[in-house]
Design a protein around this nucleic acid. Sequence first.
DNA 1: CGTATACTTGACCTCCATCAACTGTTGTGG
DNA 2: CCACAACAGTTGATGGAGGTCAAGTATACG
Lengths: 264, 264
Amino acid sequence: MFKADVRPIGSNPAEVVLRRLRSLAPISEREASLVLAMGAQRQTLPAGAEIFGQGHLVGRPKVLLSGWACRCRVLPDGRRQIFTFVVPGDAVGLCSRPDPVLQTTTIALTKVITADASPLAEAAFERGAEFEGLCQAVSVAGALDEASLLDHIVRLGRQTAYERMAHLLLELRWRLSVVGLASERRFPLPLTQEVLADALGLSIVHVNRTLQQLRREGLLEMRAGAVELLKPEVLVAASDFRLPLPVSEDEAGDEDVFRASPSA
Amino acid sequence: MFKADVRPIGSNPAEVVLRRLRSLAPISEREASLVLAMGAQRQTLPAGAEIFGQGHLVGRPKVLLSGWACRCRVLPDGRRQIFTFVVPGDAVGLCSRPDPVLQTTTIALTKVITADASPLAEAAFERGAEFEGLCQAVSVAGALDEASLLDHIVRLGRQTAYERMAHLLLELRWRLSVVGLASERRFPLPLTQEVLADALGLSIVHVNRTLQQLRREGLLEMRAGAVELLKPEVLVAASDFRLPLPVSEDEAGDEDVFRASPSA
DNA sequence: CGTATACTTGACCTCCATCAACTGTTGTGG
DNA sequence: CCACAACAGTTGATGGAGGTCAAGTATACG
């Protein structure tokens, strides 16, 4: 059985962050140790805790070492929209502009462990010349974040429930695989159907039926907080999923674990 | 009658850009003349022209001096999703990261006049210390762009057709008012119902019916490429519209033309 | 055990899409 | 100046995707 917050293989809990950054740009040893050192200042929060509040002045940026969170907004009548999921290795509130306010609330969806990312922010934004790799990795991470928002808009605006679900699952598989938390077919998904509904702009009931349809068609299995995509290629085709465009001609970090159409 | 691309009052066509930037941060005289100088290198494109292509390497950043454009993506089966509208004064492809690829296509919706924004990009990103105002304005512009994407996600995920339409019109009114192209109730809207449909994730027919409902309720009038919001407060209340949070405590530029709940 | 939380299922309804036709409105060329 | 495309907008009829309501059944947890 998968656990929601599998610890990276190495001993340092900040290793996920390093993996993430290495997938975005080449990271030197000196940079790596700066990143790993952040693992010392940890904070644990229970599911449901607010990590960043909408409208609060930004505190210090954070990275997620384990657990899942989401950025969302709640309408006055209680409707909620989730903008993006935050998975281990991701940063929250890490932003080049002296962002006066966050436009969103960040909430822990499981028990989470975070670390203070100020050292990373300082290295990337204020001493970018010294820390070229970190600077570039953080910059690319920002570009990917924006790409993910755009994908989300397409899902919500122009895709059916079935396509939205398939597309989101593939995106999560991709993001988790980068930090070593997903195999080609299987990954943890500690989300309730209600949370999926709030992300996909659907009702809980319809999320349930959509998942059942995918199961009936033999495309996935879900149990104990983990999903298995039985035929990822079919989902890719059905939802027009594509990975973010290649980062650049020469500067990829890790080799990709798998491409948009994995050999199943 | 309103024209779609009213020229700013001043003689220099780049004055809209200056207005936009001044609304975001204090701009010095030296910075202002740098901005106005960009007006010299103009380019005119017909409606339908592609300003930036998805996947192309970014050319030079541009600012829009007149006309309207949109950033969008087209799915393989022809469905189209518009992410955001680009109105006079806005920049396209202006980005701190050496963004290798644009995730979107930018298309002219009317005849447009653009100018090369490289001087602005260079001042803001490479000589930020010399051009503090520009640097800050561009940075805030980026934050507002992101906020607008988030609003769009909420519209598409959690609002009804009626709410989406009201919310979008209020956003456009706000953005145009900043550059002096909207009065409190009236502004140009050179968009077909098809374009609105592609932005709002609706069908053309339903956009038509939604507009008719708004008209029947005496909330707006549309003719000759311009809208008049007869009771903006009602639209604000119906769509839970709110302006982007205050930029910061002390550094606002222009006074706002009107706040979220204008005295109608 | 018993309570809370998540998931499941059925019945019903509504919002919005689709299809198809029709009505302006431009603008262009004969 | 009119004919007629071409396009944007309008309208009705119909159906389907997905929402809502309500009741059930696991599953976890103290």
